[in-house]
Design a protein around this nucleic acid. Sequence first.
DNA 1: CTGGATATTTCACGTTGTCAAGCAAATGGG
DNA 2: CCCATTTGCTTGACAACGTGAAATATCCAG
Lengths: 142, 142
Amino acid sequence: MTPRIDPLTREVVDLIGSVVFRYHEEYDAAAGKHQLTGAQARVLGLLSLEPMPMRRIAEQLKCEPSNVTGIIDRLEIRGLVERRPDAADRRIKLAAATAAGKETYERLRSSLDFAREPLARLSTDERTALRDILRRMLGLET
Amino acid sequence: MTPRIDPLTREVVDLIGSVVFRYHEEYDAAAGKHQLTGAQARVLGLLSLEPMPMRRIAEQLKCEPSNVTGIIDRLEIRGLVERRPDAADRRIKLAAATAAGKETYERLRSSLDFAREPLARLSTDERTALRDILRRMLGLET
DNA sequence: CTGGATATTTCACGTTGTCAAGCAAATGGG
DNA sequence: CCCATTTGCTTGACAACGTGAAATATCCAG
């Protein structure tokens, strides 16, 4: 009953698996250069865009809020993030990247070699095609 | 001095990040259905192909051998993996998937919905194009 | 045979993740 | 207005994963 997956799809899934593995390696290595773990880097990336309640961070990371408490704790100790009260709701704590946090994240981001090494092998046309296909895969049609 | 990354490349990197996140979610969910963690599933996948010394598992996972000890311990307790002596070198322990382990991994693999849901949105031509681009990205030219 | 390298394990430790319990603050129905 | 419920966050206990250092057993070269 399980629909036999055709060989093409299977190969694509494997290739995506390789890309995922490769991406992680490089992401963690880049984070490590700045003494950050992967999770810390991801949170810092979120907060570089805008301050956010703990709750929403947990939703983005798809984990429990209690987990976020610890991650923010460790970032806060290092002065990369701060907790601010929310003007409208005193239950809420807004986590916000400090100037140092934003700067760290920007440096991390531009040291993400993944942007250069494997993608450099592709022509502009290929990159465009890849972008369009990935958009469709992720359901980001315009 | 840092080469400004062009917008197209930046978007592709972001899209790949989304795919990576998505892939992980689904992979962990599929593993969870079989009471496995992501790391356990990955090891079981390796050992489904062939038995392997602890050392080599660590290399494949890019982690320390001491970490592998624990992962194999937990799989062994559940009868999915066993440690065998190596005929030629008594220092080596070959980790091998048991019949139950192989079966579990095959079930896990076919429940990997990532193969269906997002890729189903693509035509065969798009999938072929994606395969070719990913191959080039990963340096798997023929 | 001896000394050095290799394979694995053990231990201590830190981070990430879960779940349950608890506290503070908001909210809605009577 | 008031109480019950819900919501947001933290705490504590626990497990998996990951590192690094030290211990043990085995191999191998000289």
